[in-house]
């Protein structure tokens, strides 16, 4: 089958999105005011550690000043990666097509 893997990938992502929507609806109903669902697992672990009375001995020397700025750097990270992936797949594709023409 030519497109089996593509179909599997799309179905997996749809199932994932479906589970998220159902679960999100459930979570939002039980949320207390001021509470936010879907926090980061990294932060949850940090909270558990802090609850033992541990205080971190070193602070990050620079933190994104707002979540908007953090988004900027995450997007930059993804964009740089995508650029490289797209460039080389396109390069190989073009090279293969060029070889056929000759």
């Amino acid at each position: 089958m030519k497109y089996t893997l593509e179909i599997i990938a799309v179905v997996t992502i749809l199932v994932f999105a479906g589970i998220f929507l159902v679960q999100n609806a459930e979570l939002q109903k039980n949320l207390k005011p001021g509470e936010e669902a879907w926090g980061g697992a990294d932060n949850n672990a940090a909270k558990v550690i802090e609850s033992t009375g541990y205080t971190p001995w070193m602070q990050p020397f620079w933190e994104p000043p707002s979540s908007e700025i953090a988004t900027l750097f995450f997007c930059l990270q993804a964009a740089l990666g995508s650029l490289v992936i797209g460039y080389f797949f396109g390069y190989y594709r073009g090279k293969a097509d060029g070889a056929k023409v000759k």
Binding site: F16, I19, F20, Q23, N24, L27, A37, W38, G39, G40, A41, N44, F74, C75, Q77, A78, L80, G81, S82, L83, V84, I85, F88, F89, Y91, Y92
Partner: peptide
């Protein structure tokens, strides 16, 4: 080029925070 693509894949995938069944990302 393939090494660059694999490195780029780590860049892209590790920037995507996704929600999971435990209610955290």
């Amino acid at each position: 080029p393939l090494l660059a693509v694999s490195g780029a894949f780590i860049f892209v995938l590790s920037s995507l925070k996704m929600p999971s069944v435990t209610g955290s990302c």
